[in-house]
Amino acid sequence: MEWLLELEPLVRLGVLLGVLAPMAAWEILRPRRKLQVGKAYRWANNWGIVVVDTLLTRLLFPAGLVGIGLLVESRSWGPLQVVDLPAWMIVILSIVFLDLLVWAQHVMFHAVPALWRLHRMHHADLDFDLTTGLRFHPLEILLSFGIKAGGIVMIGAPAVAVLLFEIVLSSTALFNHSNVSLPKPIDRILRLFIVTPDFHRVHHSWHPNETNSNFGFNLSWWDRLLGSYQDQPRDGHDNMTIGLNLFRSPRWERLDRMLIQPFVGPADSYPINLRAEDREAERDASDDAEKRDR
């Protein structure tokens, strides 16, 4: 299976480019919303974060998550390595479990203030397009790697399932963060199964109750089943404010400033575990700030 390790970077890059090109063209030809910050400026810095994240993970974990999947197979770790099921079913179970794990991880990064400091860089983007789906702080990327690695070992996910999951995750992140418009009937059908751009855009609203909803990246089931689903933003998709009540200046879109965001300002604005009265005060403060900006 060493060929899988050798081909994995090329396969992932090929699929990424194969999804990126048509989605980027779609955004240019039929954008859902007008951007607040120049695309060239944002893209240069957002892709800069992607390069930093990729170099860091490849330096620290050269074999990647697929290598952990190969290790799991060679040692027969986890229940999926010993259960008598068809290979295709094991792959599907692995992908569904890892998707639930990423959903739970996402909720945790919103619930714990220290983790929220890392994750909020993703939410501080003043616009919402396909590069937002790849914009994560390097420290969050490393923590996410560790969480997914633990899940792979725990259930015994095979390497092929891990590779497919990573491909699906990155592809759907580009799709559901894209600044594109789907016809409402198609969106209604698709969001029963997968996360659509309108589904996930609600999660990037600056209203805290909307930021803390629609956590899914791939399958939309978890938010519906576990009570975190919100159908539409209260201000509408065209008028909603993207981002947070912090980092509202475009200068925070610069690569160097994005990297220091976890260490700047308070972390008490958006975490899920705010007391009800604190959340209400935060909502009022957000509304007041929005009125001033308008």
Rank of each mutant, 00 (worst) to 15 (best):
F109H: 12
R201V: 14
L55T: 01
T132H: 00
M240Y: 08
A40Y: 12
R201Q: 04
I147R: 08
L5F: 01
T57V: 12
P183T: 02
F263C: 04
P183Q: 13
P183R: 03
N212W: 01
N179L: 15
L80Q: 00
F145W: 02
L164N: 06
H123A: 09
V37F: 14
L98C: 15
A285K: 13
L7S: 15
G227Q: 14
V162F: 00
R294P: 07
A124L: 13
L259T: 12
D288F: 06
R30A: 12
A114R: 08
H207I: 08
A281C: 05
Q81Y: 07
H123R: 09
L55Y: 00
F199R: 02
L93Q: 03
G236R: 07
I90G: 04
N273M: 05
G265P: 00
G69S: 11
P271T: 04
E73K: 03
S170K: 07
Q230T: 10
G146P: 06
N218W: 07
A24G: 09
P185L: 13
V83M: 09
K291D: 11
F97G: 05
M1S: 04
A87S: 05
D287M: 09
L190N: 03
W221K: 10
W43L: 01
L259P: 15
R283C: 11
V96F: 15
P250T: 12
V11I: 10
P250W: 01
I242D: 00
M1C: 11
R234Y: 11
E282A: 13
R283Q: 14
S76Q: 05
F215K: 01
V96W: 13
S205W: 07
V82K: 06
P233W: 00
S170H: 14
D288I: 02
L163F: 04
V51E: 00
H110E: 02
W88R: 11
N245E: 15
D231M: 12
R224Y: 14
A87H: 13
R254E: 12
Q105C: 03
L190Q: 01
R283S: 13
P266K: 04
V66R: 00
